[in-house]
Write a protein that binds this DNA or RNA. Structure first.
Lengths: 137, 137
DNA sequence: GCTAAAGTTGAGTTCTTTACCCAACTTTGG
DNA sequence: CCAAAGTTGGGTAAAGAACTCAACTTTAGC
């Protein structure tokens, strides 16, 4: 399942934001980058897309940072992938050639079950079970 | 489900070879390319990989051509994808970062159901139901 | 109001992969 | 022997992936 690094990065970072969820502090780019081992310069782009996609919110300035928009259990991997890698779900296979339509139909079936599965897993599932919300005192 | 054109081409051509299956004639590159609307220069490569992967057999010289190695119902889309686009199933997601392993686990689950579905569909499913074997008299 | 710490924006870069093309070679039936 | 087929290996243009960088804006707190 050739998924892009970008998607992996996004999911790891969202899992990390999940740990911050419920706590009083916003997460900083540099902290996220370090905790999840993602190049911070690249992470900037990813966080931007997640914000434009409504998955996270941000605050500028001192005491700024990032947070999940919704509860971790309300955000599926599908939601994230749709924002980060839209081509993953958008593109229809071509129906050219004599067998084009039957092939397209078969590939769509596979794609549908992929999509379905991605909808069943949430950001909550990427967080350690035992950990409650993280408070930094 | 971002699948490569190459995979689509391969499936269309195999569907076409399915139509030849049971008949006395071998399929020629040019005929396959035209029937399934695949660039013949590129198709050469694809057929080569399918042969090296054991999915099809070939004969050289005059009266040469290509044919399926096995019955169409015995070849799954998974078998084809594994040969044409090995990276699709081979690569493990990285476990770096604090959330790496949970993310990898989740992505593997999605990958597994993708793989499973691909195994359930065969070349036979890409052929028109009503058509028996094609005989060219 | 300054200032330093944050996020914001947009452009640029390097590397790999994809989707091809082409020419020279080998095999084989008639 | 020769023409029609597959075989092999090289090459290439365009796109995408994975970053990097610099200049800008916002905001808390003194």
């Amino acid at each position: 399942m050739k998924l892009s690094l970008k998607v992996e990065y996004a999911l790891r970072v969202l899992a990390q934001l999940g740990r911050y969820h419920g706590g009083p502090q916003l997460a900083h780019i540099e902290d996220l980058a370090e905790a999840e081992d993602v190049p911070s310069n690249y992470l900037v782009q990813i966080l931007n897309e997640l914000r434009n996609g409504g998955v996270i919110t941000s605050r500028r300035g001192k005491q700024g940072g990032y947070a999940l928009t919704n509860e971790p259990e309300a955000v599926s991997l599908f939601d994230v992938m749709r924002v980060i890698d839209p081509g993953l779900f958008a593109n229809e296979p071509s129906r050219a050639g004599q067998s084009g339509s039957l092939v397209a139909e078969a590939l769509n079936k596979i794609g549908a079950s992929f999509e379905e599965r991605a909808k069943e897993i949430s950001i909550r599932d990427l967080m350690p079970r035992d950990a409650g919300p993280m408070y930094y005192i």
